[in-house]
């Protein structure tokens, strides 16, 4: 995995684009007699240009919480996050406006990214062609299947060629062809210097990742060079592991 960064590293300066230090997060409740849940304690992480980084961990370990904090949609209780460059975020559940068409969705988010109408149109057709949703451009989001919604969800994260791409299980609902296309796309972006970070559950994907962080017991461990599987992948198969 270290070797796979060679070409990507040559394409860029291997600069740190996201740095998280001593992140802590506890979910509280404003209602009495309800418990608060500590998710992250002292979590550190770095994401560099041209890397494909996987964040793994057991269910409920805090992967999505960590990503939401890195993206900036969730506030940490303490610690710092530094981001350099533009961010594209593909949340686990498609966060889209149900009654807008696909085209309107591109226009709305493209405007936020500061793209011109021509750039938005070009990105829309390029991604529609690549991910095979050209025939649905005039459909409303709530008229799309789960898989096609996820394609739009991913495309919105990609449309402005971000420096940092944050993907929370981006392939949920994809058919096999689209899944493979997604990985081609991710590798192309990383080769161009984009820092691609994704939450991953699939063991076979780990060979595609340049760096693997495991979220465990509220902390983040770099398990890239560990032989075999992580605790998280084992526990997802129902095996007992030593902490």
């Amino acid at each position: 995995m270290e070797a796979s960064t060679t070409t990507k590293g040559e394409a860029t300066s291997n600069k740190v684009l996201v740095r998280a230090n001593e992140i802590e997060k506890t979910y509280g409740s404003s209602f009495p007699f309800t418990r608060s849940v500590t998710v992250l304690t002292d979590a550190d992480l770095e994401i560099r240009t041209g890397e494909i980084v996987g964040i793994v961990g057991a269910n409920g370990s805090g992967k999505s919480t960590l990503m939401n904090i890195l993206v900036g949609v969730l506030e940490q209780d303490s610690g710092t996050v530094e981001r350099t460059g533009t961010v594209g975020w593909c949340p686990q559940e498609p966060l889209l406006y149900d009654r807008l068409t696909v085209g309107e969705t591109f226009r709305l988010f493209g405007s936020g990214y500061g793209m011109t109408a021509e750039e938005i149109d070009e990105a829309k057709h390029r991604l529609a062609s690549k991910l095979d949703f050209e025939q649905y451009l005039d459909y409303r989001i709530d008229q799309l299947s789960g898989g096609n919604r996820q394609k739009i969800n991913l495309s919105i994260a990609l449309m402005h060629d971000p420096d940092i791409l944050m993907l929370d299980e981006p392939y949920t609902g994809f058919d096999w062809e689209t899944y493979l296309t997604f990985w081609d796309l991710a590798e192309e972006l990383a080769a161009d210097g984009t820092a691609v970070t994704m939450i991953s559950h699939l063991i076979e994907e780990q060979s595609r990742l340049d760096r693997i962080y495991e979220v465990r017991d509220g902390q983040v461990y770099d398990v890239t060079d560990q032989e075999g599987e992580t605790d998280a992948t084992a526990s997802e198969r129902g095996e007992e592991t030593d902490e």
Binding site: V71, G72, V73, V87, W89, P91, L95, L96, Y97, L108, F109, G112, Y113, G114, I156
Partner: peptide, 10 residues
């Protein structure tokens, strides 16, 4: 939820 994504978009 979704307006938070608009904030990420700029």
């Amino acid at each position: 939820d979704t307006d938070g994504r608009l904030a990420v978009a700029g």
